[in-house]
Design a binder for these strands. Structure first.
Lengths: 215, 215
DNA sequence: TCATAATATGAATAATTGTTCAGTTTGGGG
DNA sequence: CCCCAAACTGAACAATTATTCATATTATGA
């Protein structure tokens, strides 16, 4: 499954000089800031340009329309998140499965809570955007990374690794997201994180047990 | 924590005659339909009124502004979902904890997948709306129900029931949501559901084991 | 240095759309 | 049956805002 950027969301022009790259970065940064500060409904092209210190016309040379702003922001965000996950996965090769899960939970949770306002703002920004391609690409990247990791566990060989991987990833990512929606106290979040690890560990042991019985 | 409906979102007038109630229902139904069909960005007050077979003016007698439409839709949806969960919880009193978790997963998953298009549309509709109050109310209702249920389990008494409850609820609800974002095949979803139950069971057994050791 | 392509400007445009309100219709109680 | 409040109508208004384009500025490389 290859994720393709919808043609309507591609930039009109690719920057060729240094100043143009600076403009592009400024616009994306301004978009994030305004998204965080005022939310999507208040986000207007004029305001973004203003905050970026750029004229609207310039913006429209690189972004065909407003949605492309949101798309670009999410694209960057997800790319960085995927990189972090890939790095964690590679660093965990050959470890026992339980440590892998722990590393995965820590990395993902940390990435999401580092800038909770940004996380929240992006969660809410997805309305106007056709984000399926973006999420699909993110999913394939991370699935590849986590699957490779789990199949290299030092202490377990899973019968149906695709299933185990899907379960762990969906549960972990989903739990983090849901924890954002229910505004838990810091203390509750900390407990939740620990318990999630306990839960995943229990699941892994169960998988191994079932595996043994099947042999 | 008592959830209060933001005053700006309350209807201007409460319907007093039968036809007014019909109007209200028609508007809410029309909002859902358009949300599903075209998504939030295309949702205009005129279109909603048109589809509801009502004039815009009438709509504005019951909804102070557009956001109130979304609010009302989500309010109804969450109220019904909470009712279903409460019913399931009450029906499970005195059962073993594992069956409780199974019932909870089944109820929630079924409720969300019954009308996947509606679920998806509402997930995406939350932009303009201050949905914190709504979600908080939903959370307190369901937390009360599930906590009461789990404390009535026939086979387990949890040391920290608030924690166990928080974990299970957040994991289950979060997993369902995440499963919607990653467009899994029906087969994968079915497997995921089963494995989620396995995971929760493993967690419960772990809780009980830890409990025993503490005594 | 100069020509040219890249980049930047921002007032003007065009279209959309949320909201109002003066007037009409409907229904129920007396 | 009749009256008054409740419910309904929809053209008109006001405001916002995404997008364009004719023009100006800046960088590059020959």
């Amino acid at each position: 499954m290859i994720a393709v950027v919808p043609s309507s969301l591609k930039p009109r022009k690719r920057p060729q000089q240094a100043r143009a790259n600076a403009t592009l970065d400024a616009v994306i940064e301004a978009t994030i800031q305004l998204l965080v500060k005022d939310g999507y409904p208040q986000l207007t092209t004029t305001r973004v340009a203003e905050r970026a210190g750029v004229s609207v016309g310039t913006m429209y040379q690189y972004f065909p329309h407003k949605q492309a702003l949101i798309y670009a922001v999410n694209e960057r965000y997800l790319a960085r998140l995927a990189e972090k996950i890939e790095a964690t996965c590679q660093a965990s090769y050959g470890q026992p499965a339980e440590l892998m899960v722990e590393a995965l939970i820590d990395t993902y949770w940390k990435a999401k809570t580092e800038r909770p306002d940004v996380t929240r703002a992006l969660y809410r920004s997805v309305v106007e955007m056709d984000n399926e391609a973006l999420l699909a690409e993110f999913a394939t990247r991370t699935d590849a990374a986590t699957t490779a990791m789990f199949s290299n566990a030092s202490d377990a060989a899973f019968a149906d690794i695709a299933s185990v991987n899907r379960v762990l990833v969906t549960v972990i990512f989903g739990t983090v997201r849901n924890s954002f929606e229910r505004a838990h106290s810091d203390q509750d979040v900390e407990d939740l994180r620990r318990q999630l690890l306990v839960m995943c560990r229990a699941y892994l042991q169960n998988c191994v047990r079932v595996d043994r019985e099947l042999r």
